[in-house]
Design a protein around this nucleic acid. Structure first.
Length: 474
RNA sequence: GGUCCCUUCGUCUAUCGGUUAGGACACUAGAUUUUCAUUCUAGGAAGAGCGGUUCGACUCCGCUAGGGACUGCCA
């Protein structure tokens, strides 16, 4: 009863998404774990598109999956396999199963099947069709049929799961599942088992929702005399309220995480910590994750998606990222928001980003925080700032402008000192000067501390904005 | 209904029979401060319940409760 071991073969893992138009974040996490395990063991990571359901299939949807995986940096080691393209092979396997008595033609109508299910339930087991022991006669003619697997009524199917341990399913509770539809097309459980076998998959790492499917698939492996791969069923990813991830939880597909302004390395790091951990390690590189990752450290309980924590991790990676990269990413967001792009703007952004990135949890934040440098002179004065620029305020701002103009080093630290020195010379606190200066420089948009704002804007722009304001309230 | 899985601070997790049950995010208070933020300091916060096994249980076993998956001619 013991299966041949796949432990000695080089590891081959796979991610097998269905093309639904987006790559679910749970699938992305599965892909990550498969990728990490393959990298950790020096094995291969493959991808297969589960497109047997043609009604739902579209090339665009397939492309979304590739794009998402690519963005995440999870690159397969071989070209993707299309499950649909292998339908003939699946049918061939069914022929063998038929010959060996592991499958049968079932002529039940949908209504009859529903009835049979009710009967089976009443009898305390899963669906068994009366056709499993009946030979079709001439009266069946060309009546439509499906082909079902002939699941044993006794015994149990045991999965030695790498994360859950030994899990046993009584065979009587596993139904005679459909292998081939009426139109002769293969169904999921068949296709998965055949493809995983043919692709040489040694470790099937996927979501917990497939745990009971593993039993059905093992039945197929055994019937065919194939080596059973190792299974590892990952805990589910659920929403912040513990319920299944859905629209109302906000982002649920990789595309939405991209749009929300997260960096791929941050998403990888965060996702790796959902259902897996390595001691107290929170922030770690891909190299470390690969070195540390092991199936035995995968957690068993479902994990909730916490966007707040993702934001914290994303902030860390935004602080660590190269300025040119952040500049390009941020410029793109400004462009999406309708601002024309130019090299001059990129230069402004590149200077501003290092000064504001500490406060950015997402690239969207970074765009918000840098918006003030992109404003065009003359900036309209907001009401609050206008009020601050009374006679006293105007005089002070005018003197400040002259004071700043004498600054030789236009960078934050010396500017900060200059601001303080000016306040002292005026005999007031910075509180009397700051708000007005801020309003004048930023036009009401979020801006960093004043010295940094001055540096980001540069001498000419800063002094220009001050002069504009002064002339407006004259 | 049946089968199976899960249960440590609000959240993600550490612990792998002996710990003041640790860390991170979040939160609270204080400091800094020209807004927001950053930064710094301090703090509160957990073993679902009940039985066993054991000198000793978060850890092993059982039961109960709660949550979830599957039970499709979807994947």
């Amino acid at each position: 009863m013991s299966d041949p071991s796949s432990a000695d073969r080089p590891v081959v893992t796979r991610i097998a998404p269905s093309p639904t138009g987006s790559l679910h974040i749970g699938n992305a996490r599965s892909a990550l774990f498969n990728w990490l395990y393959a990298r950790h063991t020096g094995g291969k990571f493959l991808i297969r598109i589960e497109d047997t359901d043609r009604a739902r299939h579209s090339e665009a949807a397939v492309q979304v999956i590739f794009d998402s995986l690519n963005w995440l940096g999870l690159i397969p080691d071989a070209p993707p396999v299309s499950q649909f393209a292998r339908a003939d092979i699946h049918r061939g396997v069914v022929e063998t199963l038929l010959e060996r008595g592991w499958a049968y033609h079932d002529y039940m109508t949908t209504e009859e099947a529903d009835e049979a299910k009710a009967v089976a339930r009443a009898e305390g087991h899963a669906l068994r069709s009366p056709w499993r022991d009946r030979t079709p006669g001439p009266e069946q003619g060309d009546q439509p049929f499906v082909i079902r697997f002939k699941t044993p009524m006794d015994g149990e199917t045991v999965i030695d799961d790498r994360v859950r341990g030994v899990v046993a399913f009584p065979n009587k509770d596993l139904e005679d599942f459909v292998l081939l539809r009426t139109d002769g097309t293969p169904i999921y459980n068949l296709a998965v088992a055949v493809d995983d076998h043919d692709m040489g998959i040694t470790h099937v790492i996927r979501g917990e929702e497939h745990l009971s499917n593993a039993a059905r698939q093992i039945l197929i492996y055994r019937a065919m005399g194939w080596e059973v791969p190792a299974f590892a069923h990952l805990p589910l990813l659920v929403g912040a309220d513990g319920a299944k991830l859905s629209k109302r939880h906000g982002a649920q597909s990789v595309g939405e995480f991209i749009a929300a302004g997260y960096l791929p390395e941050a998403v990888r790091n965060y996702l790796a910590r959902l259902g897996w951990g390595h001691g107290d390690a929170e922030i770690f590189s891909d190299a470390q994750a690969i070195e540390w990752f092991d199936l035995k450290d995968v957690v068993r309980s479902p994990a909730r998606l916490d966007l707040v924590k993702l934001g914290h991790i994303n902030n860390h990676y935004i602080r660590a990222a190269d300025i040119p990269r952040l500049t390009a990413l941020t410029a793109q967001i400004h462009a999406d928001r309708g601002l024309p792009q130019s090299e001059a703007q990129d230069a402004l952004l590149a200077r501003a980003i290092p000064l504001v990135r500490e406060g950015a949890k997402t690239l969207l934040d970074l765009a918000d925080l840098t918006a003030f440098v992109l404003k065009k002179r003359p900036l309209p004065l907001d009401e609050k700032t206008s009020k601050l620029l009374d006679e006293e305020g105007r005089g002070r701002l005018d003197r400040l402008s002259a004071w700043l103009d004498t600054q030789s080093d236009w960078t934050a630290a010396p500017l900060s000192k200059a601001l303080q020195a000016f306040a002292e010379s005026e005999g007031v606190g910075l509180g009397k000067i700051g708000p007005a200066l801020r309003g004048v420089l930023s036009g009401g948009a979020p801006a960093p501390d004043l010295a940094s704002a001055l540096e980001a804007l540069g001498r000419e722009e800063s002094l220009g904005r001050i002069a504009d304001a002064l002339s407006q309230v004259q």
